[in-house]
Computed example of a mutant assay.
Amino acid sequence: MGFSVPTITSWLGILELGCSNPAVLNYWKDKLYALSDLSGQVIRSLPNVRDRLKAYDSSEVVAQLGCPVSRQSFSDQLAMLADDELAHSKPLAQLMAADALAALLRLAAWLTAESQVASWEVEVQEGTQNVICAAWAIPNWCPITQSWSNPMQTALEKLAALAGSTKKRPGPVTHLGKLWAAHDGMEAESRIRLLRNWVQHKGGRPSFQMLHDLVTVCFDFHIKERNDLPADVIPAYWEGACMLRFAETMSVIIRDLQRAGWPRELVTSVMDVYATEYRTARDLMGKPIEN
């Protein structure tokens, strides 16, 4: 049609190469092409910022993939702002960023659901077929503590339990640090400090290899305790490290959104799309969640 949107091409390539369930590509292909038309043709054909923002907000695909609260607030902001304020409006920028985050979380939900469906026999055997995988990695608001959960902390608690921790003391960070250090022949305090920094977002983000190493140690401990060695244990290490990266990423995102002063209602709306989209994905893959 005379134009190209490289981002759309990249996402289509990832889905075509990485997804075995045809429902994934069937669902996302039309939406990605609609986004391509919106950004590559419709918006560029409009003469001014206000018309472009109106076209964006009224787009069906933005409503489908974006953040629900953004849709409620976007038109109100457009009505309130003068033309020369639109390009520099912080509330509008937040609403559009919320749409982008929501779309990425919806995509993550599909990819995670596809992985669950691909290992369906194991899920049924373990009784986890009606679980929304990785829902624990989505930050949630606690009205009692008036704070958001830290998914990285939750991830380490889950790994510690997998690796034999049955007590509150020592805590998951100490338990995992000692186990990891013993495996690598290092001082326990070094690993404990590293894990504590991950939870507290200090010293930079962990590399994927570090996450993979920790998951491998924990999985191996669990396998030895159960006295069985799954045939697919190597891919399981990688998938476990991906889940740990997802949790770590979400913990960074919730930290940054709080620092940026995002309204709690907007953040909650973004986070809520994961579970909703997960159910949609399972339905369209022919494996609906039954509770």
Rank of each mutant, 00 (worst) to 15 (best):
G2E: 08
G2I: 09
F3I: 10
S4D: 12
S4Q: 13
V5W: 06
P6F: 06
I8P: 11
G13M: 12
L17H: 13
L17G: 10
C19M: 09
P22T: 06
Y27C: 03
K29P: 01
A34N: 06
S36Y: 01
S36N: 09
L38H: 03
S39A: 01
R44D: 00
D51L: 13
D51Y: 09
L53P: 05
S59W: 05
E60M: 03
V62N: 07
L65F: 07
G66A: 07
G66T: 09
C67V: 05
P68S: 10
P68T: 12
V69M: 14
V69S: 08
R71H: 13
Q72E: 15
D76K: 15
L81Y: 02
D83L: 03
E85P: 01
H88L: 01
L92F: 01
A103G: 12
L104R: 13
R106H: 05
A108W: 15
A108P: 07
A108G: 12
A109D: 12
A109E: 12
A109H: 10
S115F: 07
V117I: 13
W120C: 05
E121K: 14
Q125P: 03
G127H: 10
Q129D: 14
N130Y: 11
A134Y: 11
W141A: 00
P143K: 02
I144P: 00
T145H: 00
Q146I: 00
S147Q: 05
E157H: 14
K158V: 08
A160G: 10
A163H: 11
S165L: 13
T166W: 01
K167C: 03
K167L: 07
R169N: 06
G171D: 15
P172G: 11
V173Y: 02
T174F: 08
T174R: 15
T174G: 02
H175G: 03
L176E: 07
A181P: 09
D184E: 15
M186C: 09
R191G: 02
R191A: 12
I192L: 03
L194W: 04
R196E: 13
W198V: 03
H201Y: 03
G203V: 07
R205A: 11
L211H: 04
H212W: 06
V217H: 04
C218K: 11
F221S: 07
H222V: 01
E225I: 04
N227I: 01
P230G: 00
D232W: 00
V233F: 00
I234F: 01
P235I: 01
E239K: 04
G240Y: 02
R245S: 08
E248N: 13
T249Q: 12
V252A: 08
I253R: 07
D256Q: 11
G261I: 09
P263M: 04
E265F: 01
T268R: 09
T268H: 04
V270N: 02
V270C: 03
M271E: 05
V273L: 04
A275E: 15
E277L: 05
T280L: 12
A281Q: 06
D283M: 13
L284D: 11
M285C: 11
M285I: 12
G286Q: 13
E290R: 15
